[in-house]
Design a protein around this nucleic acid. Structure first.
Lengths: 203, 203
DNA sequence: CGAACTTACTGAACACTGTTTAGTGATGCA
DNA sequence: TGCATCACTAAACAGTGTTCAGTAAGTTCG
């Protein structure tokens, strides 16, 4: 009797329905401005129903957080065919920044907001591991190719990630107000290129 | 008759009383967990009174935001006596990170949270300018001393700030879960040192 | 001095928020 | 058919930022 299977399918459908509704609202209006009641309205259920499928709002955020990593890694994957490892690294940096600019809310959730991180805390973090592993792999290729000196791969990858992340985080959180609007984009690009250049030849 | 002066003084006192109460609660419990009612309780006034002195909660946050910059610049100032400009730069980086670790809530407010930035938006941002100006000054010294090549000072300073900021932002927002607890501190230090080294000699 | 005006302050309300619980009506199984 | 299980919800709880009418002092002036 396929009843339990059907129920399970229906449950999965319902989770998806909630998730999709939540995603739409979150990405359109920002996470702060979307309430459980908003989501409930959008999918035409009562707010309490959402709690039968997700423990709380943070669990909803965390599910989206996971999806974000899958999406980002997908955008990285095409770059892996590039042969020059340094070029690969530079393009990954650009892809990271592009992802942040094109999906600001998702990026926020993935790398800035604290809420979703309360959901994994000390456990394993597969998605984060995978994305960082990708970066480490490329860095290792750069070392193997003699482009980078033989420093610790993790520390090197960490340093590069930090630099690119800082750049995007400051931009997204509107901390570049000291630059005139017209110059901002140029300074940002210059800073990124300068960083890439510095990796090869120092400042 | 000094009545209007006294009133003005009393108003200033009241603003300080609110600010001090708010600061204590904010820095102790985090910004999200402190309500206007909490602050009102702490200073033994009604919540509505706070609105007679500050337009809204964000204005309170912004005032603290400003104080944070003053405090940070004060911690930078002693470093300016150092003679080696590169050493000065490295120590400023360390000071930035130290400030973030020792004042996580304040740092958050200054560089990560969006709330206080809604309060200045397009206007001039004196405090930010001053802090960034300090960095630019040291970078210029490095260029003048022939330590750095003659790139655009703003872009160079921006690149360096980004790198250091990324490092601290990822740490504060708990995005380093992929590293085992025991290694984390070491990787962070290695990454920082590696960045400093890279500035001089490339990676 | 006493009346009138001004000011500082507050209780109570408004419109929200996330979350829990008791209860309802449909579905599945004996 | 009757009982149990299930999905679902209305209503409530405790909290949030914020506003507003009303009160009780302080100040000014005739």
């Amino acid at each position: 009797m396929g009843i339990v299977e059907r129920k399970e399918r229906e449950r999965e459908d319902m989770r998806r329905l909630i998730m999709d509704g939540a995603k739409q609202l979150f990405l359109a209006n920002g996470f702060e401005k979307v309430s459980i009641r908003n989501i409930a309205d959008a999918i035409e259920y009562s707010p309490a129903t959402i709690y039968l499928y997700y423990k709380d709002k943070n669990e909803l955020l965390f599910a989206l957080h996971q999806q974000g990593f899958i999406k980002m890694v997908q955008e990285f994957r095409p770059l892996l065919v590039l042969t020059d490892p340094f070029e690969k690294l530079v393009q990954m940096g650009r892809a990271y920044i592009r992802f942040a600019v094109e999906n600001p809310e998702l990026f926020d959730l993935m790398f800035i907001m604290t809420a979703p991180m309360d959901k994994l805390d000390l456990e394993e973090w597969e998605e984060g591991d995978q994305a960082f592993g990708l970066l480490m792999h490329v860095v290792q290729e750069c070392i193997d190719a003699g482009i980078f000196k033989q420093h610790d791969v993790r520390a090197t990858a960490m340093m590069i990630w930090s630099a690119i992340h800082g750049y995007t985080a400051l931009f997204l959180r509107k901390r570049l107000g000291m630059f005139p609007d017209c110059d901002r984009q140029m300074i940002m690009d210059d800073a990124f290129n300068l960083f890439c250049q510095t990796l090869r030849h120092g400042l």
